[in-house]
Simulated assay, not measured.
Amino acid sequence: MAFRRVLRASVPQSRLRAVGEEVAKRYGEPLDSIESLEADNWLSVPCVVNERWFVKVIADQHTLVHGLLTTGRNLGAFSSGTEGFFEHFSTPVEMAEHELESTRRMRELGVNAPEPLEAFEHDGLGVLVLEYLPSFRTLDAVSSEELSDLVDGLFGNLSRMHEAGIAHGDLRAENVLVAPKDGDPTLYFIDATRVNDDAIEDARAYDLACALASLAPLLGPADAVSAAADHYSAEDLLSAREFLDFVNLRPDHDFDAAQVKGEIEKFAA
């Protein structure tokens, strides 16, 4: 627990308030409120400013933690028989600018993501400003009935990104939000990380493995693989299979890798 507290960097309230004042000023408003959100997030301090803007505040320690996690993930990729494809950031504002650009690229493809507004540096902090979704749940918090209606959209949007040469790099239930849009529950993708463009095929296979790992405990391995197979070939699924043991080592995934592998092998046969 002590180690986790060290990793989860905090930003003093005085600095958060200064960021909130700067954000509000940029949009011609005084600062009425800034609320820090409770989240198991080691890579930023998420806030809501004036109940209108979602703001991620990134400090030097978040950049350091991202580097540590990137090293660990690359070692895991080596264990799967491929070179590491995750890339780190050198500064907090670089992290913010990357997520802004990744979110823009997803939206250009028609993939739902909170509207990206801007990224900037303030007092050595990286600041990312996005549309605030006031009512959302993470993917693992929806009912099984809703999930059955959403899963095709998840794999459809993921394959759309992959066909355009984009990999998410950190796909898990917490990074897929469900929020109302025009009265219907809609998927929103957040928190894409940086991967090496020269290793995009491996990164896409890893994304697919993460999607299967996220959905298998919620839908069952057979239904998760079946849903993926509507958008991915047997070859794609077999490539994802090679990353399942690595994904299973991550603390944010809890699934039966052997069962998912078995369902992939059944489909491929």
Rank of each mutant, 00 (worst) to 15 (best):
N175Q: 03
G153W: 00
P180C: 08
L150K: 00
S159D: 14
R160V: 11
L171F: 05
T186H: 00
L154W: 01
L150Y: 01
L154F: 11
M161N: 03
D170M: 02
R172L: 09
P180Q: 07
M161V: 08
A173D: 12
A173G: 14
P180W: 02
R172N: 15
R160I: 10
L177A: 11
L150M: 03
A167C: 10
R172A: 12
L150H: 01
G156N: 02
N157H: 13
L187I: 04
K181T: 13
G153L: 01
N157V: 13
L177V: 15
H168Q: 08
A179W: 06
A179M: 09
D184N: 11
L150S: 01
T186C: 00
H168R: 02
I166P: 05
H168N: 06
G156P: 01
A173P: 13
L154R: 02
G169H: 05
K181S: 15
D184Q: 13
R172T: 09
E174P: 13
D182C: 13
I166H: 11
L177Q: 08
L150E: 04
L154V: 14
K181F: 12
L171N: 04
L171W: 07
T186K: 00
F155E: 10
L177F: 13
E174T: 15
R160E: 04
I166E: 10
G153D: 12
V176M: 02
L158D: 05
F155L: 10
G156K: 01
S159L: 14
L187C: 01
D170T: 08
V178G: 02
G165S: 08
L177W: 14
L150P: 05
L177M: 10
V151N: 00
N157Q: 14
G153F: 00
H162L: 01
V151P: 04
V178W: 05
L154D: 06
P185R: 00
D152N: 12
G165D: 07
G169R: 04
M161T: 08
D182G: 14
L158I: 12
L150G: 05
L150T: 08
R160P: 08
E174Y: 10
R172S: 13
D184F: 12
A167H: 09
S159A: 15
I166V: 11
N175R: 07
G183L: 00
G153K: 00
D184C: 09
E163Q: 09
L154Q: 05
R160T: 13
R172Y: 12
L154A: 09
H168A: 06
V178Y: 02
V151E: 03
E174C: 12
H162W: 04
G153T: 01
V176A: 04
M161I: 07
A179H: 03
S159I: 14
P185L: 00
D170I: 06
L171P: 08
N157Y: 12
T186I: 03
A164N: 08
G183R: 00
K181M: 13
N175E: 06
R160K: 14
A179E: 10
L177K: 08
R160H: 04
L177G: 14
F155G: 12
G169C: 09
G169P: 10
G169V: 11
E163H: 11
G169Q: 05
D184P: 03
V151G: 04
M161S: 05
E163W: 02
L158W: 07
P185I: 06
E174G: 15
V178N: 02
D184L: 15
